[in-house]
Design a protein around this nucleic acid. Structure first.
Lengths: 341, 341
DNA sequence: TTGAAAGCGCTAACAA
DNA sequence: TTGTTAGCGCTTTCAA
């Protein structure tokens, strides 16, 4: 390994001079400058990134506290983070363990937590290392229980309303909901509440029949969650219950894909027999037939915003408590227009 | 930030003593030891990872030189790397730029290159920073042009043979091939060669009609490649050419999914009208209907092996030139058994 | 205009 | 058994 000392020796100057040349700072005689440059070139000198980091007390790395790449949503969050970070010279490292303590052993300048539940836990258990900035992605800011952490929010209450509005416009009134969590579990968040608010008037006391829920047993925010498989179960239940709903809103795209798959395996046509809407708007929706109609949560944008806000804290010291990303809807082929009937 | 110095002051000992206690090395009097532990606890001391890294000249990080998470194959490689790395206390950072120089600014102990093409370029352009260990994933070791880098190989020649063998067993003789590269482009590698070898006797001079190729224009190993979209084009071409093949082998799963999607959009039934086999065995194959039959390349295993071999170089100094992962086949529902006819 | 020296947080050889 | 010291590679006073 070639160090500044080596360059200095070769150019017959001090390491200080080398630093000045390489950083374009301070005065240094022209000819010495050239000598340094040449020596550095000859030796193939490369600055040592670790030493740089130690010196400036900054790693240029951010932790995305997540391990599950099985959920396409996380992949998109991550992609958004990567792209933004890359442009501003940062790196994203990904890791999620059961042990927050491990965060303290990492070379990072800040942490991005993937949701409120983990953020809450972090507040309680993890905030050991003083001064490490943290932001969290959140899904309905009204449900955030404490505000010590800035949130980059995506309002899934609105997302659910978008899904239901869209289905209404297509003539659907009786709409079921599939979620892996139990319907009153706060983890379900705004999606659950919005559905209940909108559908209670429609279904009255029959409402709970139309809710396909509770597939995750002993739910734990840290477990690897297989939404796809639970979606298959939800589809089976839908048929078993003989529901007369014309459409189903799914907790997320992975789950929607599971339902779609199971329906197709059972010979139930989508969208002819039943329509499906996902939530997330992940890219994967394009890969299936029928292409999934899904609520667009601007996920990669949310990832990018997480990085932006975090860097604002790291570099500028600014803290903004909540940032939001827009919600849309992406039409696919998984919803039948009943008005064309 | 609390340092060992702070702890030392509070415990009325030297920093050396603190180090010894915290590292369980060397002698230190029992009562001092306890004082140190208590002081560290009181102060909430955490070792500074950057200083540790500088000291031991090791970052505990490995670069996966890749940026494209749109290809499920890369996601699986990455997952395999992450899991293995996690178990041995390393982190994987992911980044791929057009500029190899940037690698020199990263806090990493080694690099994993995602394929031979990039490895070749790296050899030519990048090997600036001396001593940084590198391994590469490869796809047919016979095609590796130089051996300065250890390869973790996955023999896609065999993979293609597996696909064709399987199709033969199911009664398919006339089998087309879809690839985004031109058929004689070495980038295509073993898949191409194996196909040509096996199908030339079948198709004779008509062979090239059955090859749907060349969709990537001005192919560049660094570009973001959209296999899915090119798969759609390949499917359209298949129909347009009016081919009488009963099955198609696809370059990879993403491309296969594109073909499947396009066939379905055009009303061509898979596998009734035409069978499809992918190569990769990515998890995504389960998400579509019909589930994709695909050659299993042990991708996450390959990712893990990349890390294992690289760590062998980093920590042990051992170098092994080629490591291989097994090839299998995962049955889905995208191949029709013609023998049941 | 230049370089010696101190320091970022940590470890290890050495001396006491 | 303990602490002083030098050093990992780099930057930045500070004095010359």
């Amino acid at each position: 390994m070639v160090t500044r000392k080596d360059v200095a020796d070769r150019a017959h100057v001090s390491v200080t001079a080398v630093s000045r040349v390489l950083n374009n700072s301070g005065y240094v005689a022209k000819e010495k400058k050239e000598a340094v440059l040449k020596a550095a070139e000859d030796l193939g000198y490369r600055p040592n990134p670790i030493a740089m980091s130690l010196r400036r007390q900054r790693t240029g790395q951010i932790l995305f506290y997540c391990r599950d790449l099985g959920n396409f949503f996380n992949i998109e969050l991550y992609s958004g983070m990567m792209e933004y970070a890359r442009r501003v010279g940062y790196m994203i490292v990904m890791s999620g363990t059961f042990d927050f303590e491990q965060i303290n052993t990492m070379m990072i300048d800040g942490v991005i937590l993937p949701n409120q539940e983990i953020a809450n836990r972090y507040e309680k258990l993890g905030k050991q290392r003083s001064g490490l900035p943290v932001v969290a992605a959140s899904y309905g800011v009204a449900l955030v229980s404490q505000r010590d952490i800035p949130y980059i929010d995506c309002d899934v209450y609105v997302a659910m309303e978008n899904a239901l509005d869209y289905l209404n416009r297509k003539g659907h009134e009786r709409i079921a909901f599939a979620t892996p969590y139990t319907i009153f579990d706060p983890v379900g968040g705004g999606r659950h509440i919005a559905y209940l608010n909108r559908m209670r008037p429609i279904f009255g006391k029959d409402l709970e029949k139309y809710i396909l829920d509770g597939y995750f047993k002993g739910g734990d925010a840290f477990q690897q969650e297989d939404f796809f498989t639970e979606g298959k179960h939800a589809a089976s239940d839908f048929i078993r219950r003989g529901l007369d709903a014309t459409a189903i809103v799914c907790f997320n795209d992975n789950l929607a894909l599971g339902m779609l798959k199971q329906f197709q395996d059972m010979g139930v046509c989508v969208p002819e027999a039943v329509s499906i809407v996902g939530i997330d708007g992940t890219n994967i929706r394009r890969y299936v037939t029928p292409a999934l109609t899904s609520v667009d949560l601007s996920t990669s944008r949310q990832g990018a915003e997480c990085v932006r806000v975090l860097l604002d804290m790291i570099e500028g010291g600014h803290v903004r408590s909540v940032t939001s990303v827009p919600i849309g809807l992406i039409e696919g082929e998984s919803v039948r227009d009943l008005k064309l009937k």
